[in-house]
């Protein structure tokens, strides 16, 4: 999954292809039913729902962009701003609470000034705090990184360890990039 594709580099073609293949409403009623899932496709492709994607969806389904924004701001899963390099779903369901997720939520707020949907200032990590259960309570407190890897039995210390790894990876990547351009 692509993460944080900058707004200027959004390639709408993949989204258009998906819309044309699988989103063919028979009438206006169908169009309305399909908006949220079309937005999910966009978020899946770009890591968030960029404005350009919203417009493409509106055009394809024949609905207004206002209506789409109304939905994007209602459903907490959607990101409308470009996320950081990594995205984390931090579970704050009951098992995770009992296991100590409140400490992580507080830590993020105190140390990084990050609440749900926000990105650390250095752009490393966007955190979405999930109120429902992620369904892997045996690992509580747990987070899902980049929609793929699970980090279980999290503590503030292990979270910091993870942050160190993510930051050093991104530094290494930056050095490589600059080598190439030299």
């Amino acid at each position: 999954m692509a993460h944080g594709a900058p707004a200027s580099e959004i390639d709408l073609q993949p989204l258009r292809t998906i819309l044309e293949d699988r989103y063919n409403p028979e009438n206006y009623q169908d169009s309305l039913e399909l908006i949220v899932q079309a937005c999910q496709e966009a978020q899946h492709l770009y890591g968030y729902v960029p404005k350009a994607a919203t417009e493409a969806i509106a055009e394809h389904l024949g609905v207004s962009t206002n209506r789409i924004f109304g939905l994007l701001t209602f459903y907490a899963d959607f990101l409308t701003d470009e996320p950081g390099e990594h995205t984390m779903l931090l579970c704050h369901g009951t098992a995770c609470y009992v296991g100590g997720s409140q400490k992580l939520v507080d830590h993020l707020d105190l140390r990084y000034d990050v609440t749900s949907g926000k990105t650390t200032r250095d752009g490393t990590l966007t955190v979405q705090i999930v109120n429902g259960c992620l369904g892997v309570c045996d690992l509580a407190p747990v987070a899902q990184l980049d929609h793929h890897d699970y980090c279980g039995h999290l503590t503030v210390e292990s979270f910091e360890g993870l942050m160190d790894t993510l930051r050093s990876e991104s530094k290494a990547a930056t050095v490589e990039d600059s080598d190439e351009t030299d």
Binding site: I35, V36, Q40, A76
Partner: peptide, 27 residues
């Protein structure tokens, strides 16, 4: 059979909210 989904809003599990969600409205 149609599959529909929304995300990140507990209230959409409530019957009438769920139906609005299906209809492409705020649940």
């Amino acid at each position: 059979m149609r599959v529909r989904s929304g995300g990140g809003a507990y209230i959409c599990g409530e019957g009438s909210a769920l139906m609005y969600a299906i209809m492409g409205e705020r649940g």
